[in-house]
Amino acid sequence: MHIKITLAVLVAVALSLLAVAGAQAASFDAAVSWTDNSTNEEGFRIYRNNVMVGTTATNVSSFTDVGLAENTVYCYRVGAVNAAGETQGPETCAATGTVLLPPAAPGSPTIIYIGKP
């Protein structure tokens, strides 16, 4: 009985979800993929702008890098690794998109002269 009352009250008190309070800044994920050319690697290291941001296991040739900023150039490079060392491949660079906000509307025009020229 108590549960029924509780449910009734909860349903009766209508939850009012307000309109979205406002969109925030965009972020980007990068899906990075490469060709596995080696036969004796034990995994891969993924570098973004020469800083290692992740690793994958043997024969796994894709990686998702998250939380990137807009309007920024990111350069990726992948290294094949095993216990004896690392062999790096070439670098690829790409830019995240730009969000162009419309400019603020100008104020209402003011009539400053009426008459014959």
């Binding site: 979205v20 990068a30 899906a31 490469w34 050319n37 990137l68 790096q88």
Partner: peptide, 23 residues
Amino acid sequence: PPNAAPGAPAIQFAKFGTMRFAW
């Protein structure tokens, strides 16, 4: 060390946003 370098990476960006809700 690994006997061949990986290929140049392909990059595909996906864009995400954040939304705020109030009630």
